[in-house]
Design a protein around this nucleic acid. Structure first.
Ligand SMILES: [Mn+2]
Ligand SMILES: [Mn+2]
Ligand SMILES: [Mn+2]
Ligand SMILES: [Mn+2]
Lengths: 253, 253
DNA sequence: AAAAAAAGTTAGCCGATCCTAATCGAGCTC
DNA sequence: GAGCTCGATTAGGATCGGCTAACTTTTTTT
């Protein structure tokens, strides 16, 4: 069977690739600026297949000039591959914003639907949605939406909550999680993008937080995935030395 | 590869079938209340595959209890198969209404996009769109949208423009075409659903029409696909004997 | 009713994507 | 630096949904 959508256009657009290929490219892209890089195993986990399948697909993608790889090494995207990957990330995040804002999806419901739709919508759909939402630059999780020209803003000033010293204050801007349970917890704790918080203390198993008057513990695993826009520290509270393991933050979408 | 979406639920919902299987069921449904029925050849044409592929797929669908067939005969849907088919028709038409009304797609752009999206949206998406549009009962082509409970209104009072006698007046309600060129022509002639028309004369090669002041010829092939809500004939103009071949009207979606 | 035409089916094949089991290699441990 | 361990690859196979070519059945024509 040929899952690939028609339209083997001149520019090798994402439209000529199967959903599966698109997912591989997207995950390679998302893992690329991560500590370990896009390894066979991580890709297998993210995509939900066995490592052997990843090896097979990477070979095919390499043949098509979308990735560059050396056996036993992490893969990298070619420029063409990267363009397609970013295109899909744009679809995904734009769709999440759309589902949330226009269709009234709950915060934790958007991801799954976008995961399937991202491969199917046309450029026209993308365009119309972008218009309708007036070119949003963030999805509901705070992830930046690549522009129409596929430029992707980097969140250089954001810092992982897990690494903030006691006394830090700031605003949660991104939640880089996709696990349903984790998302539900974030919602129950009201730690959605926009929420202002203050670090009340650090512990080996998490971060004690002050937000909206109450104080509670954010598990370390969760804190590693909350990116905070740190407020310029008030002169009265000098920054403390940070602590906690610098576990790499893996983004989804 | 396994194209089928997960979710092998208890009720054998459409979600456990591949897009391909869904398209077969849909086309069988649409051809079923047609003169020739769902034959291998017609299915092959509609779906865009070779007849041999249709035979193969029908066997698989029969094994799964979705169709009943006897070799060399037209296929029929089982009750399960029908339910799934109608579900997909609902998705398709609801999506067309949505693309048109919410995203501002042009009349002739909606079909193709809906063709792909129909297999991918969740029940939640369907639900939210139906809410947003306040349960529309027609898509932009005038095709009835099955209800949430999958009831499908029949257009018994509508008649094919091709068969109307001279002097008939009425309102175009449905355009059962999907060919892009044909759709464009319909739009140029301004024969969209809602347009009031009067038959000025019948010819072997088409129907002469009075609409919005101007008079023009509608090719027979087109006229066969325009369904008209005929106005009660004014007492002064007695109905004439009809003429023209009773070519079966094949619907898409 | 025989022959021709059209429609449908079968057989054999292919490519895409997944799997398991077995093997191989890279990089850390001692 | 010899192993050991874990990650990666290869080999072989399954399934799905297409295709072509050849054959069979039905339908139409003569
Ligand atoms: Mn996806
Ligand atoms: Mn997101
Ligand atoms: Mn379809
Ligand atoms: Mn329609």
């Amino acid at each position: 069977m040929n899952d690939a959508v028609e339209g083997d256009g001149p520019h090798k657009g994402s439209a000529s690739l199967s959903s599966s290929q698109q997912d591989y490219l997207k995950q390679i892209f998302l893992l690329n600026d991560t500590a370990r890089g896009a390894t066979t195993q991580l890709l297998a986990e993210r995509i939900g297949v066995r490592p052997a399948s990843v090896t097979g697909m990477l070979k095919r993608l390499a043949e098509e000039g979308l990735v560059e790889r050396a056996p036993y090494r992490a893969v990298h995207l070619t420029e063409t591959g990267r363009r397609i990957a970013v295109e899909i990330v744009r679809h995904h995040r734009l769709l999440e914003a759309f589902l949330s804002q226009t269709l009234g999806y709950r915060w934790d419901e958007v991801h799954e639907e976008a995961e399937a739709l991202e491969h199917v919508i046309s450029e026209r759909f993308e365009q119309k949605v972008a218009e309708l939402l007036a070119d949003p630059d963030r999805d509901p999780h705070g992830d930046p939406i690549p522009t129409r020209e596929l430029a992707l803003e980097e969140d250089q000033h954001l810092r992982t909550l897990a690494l903030l010293p006691k006394g830090s204050r700031g605003t949660i801007r991104r939640v880089t999680l996709q696990d349903q349970d984790a998302l539900n917890l974030v919602e129950r704790l009201d730690l959605l993008p926009g929420r202002t918080i203050e670090v009340a203390g650090t512990h080996p198993d998490g971060i004690s937080l002050l937000a909206a008057g109450s104080r509670f513990l954010v598990p370390a695993l969760l804190a590693a995935h909350l990116l905070v826009d740190v407020a310029p520290h008030p002169s009265s509270a000098p920054p403390k030395k940070r602590e906690g393991a610098g576990r790499p933050v893996a983004h989804e979408q």
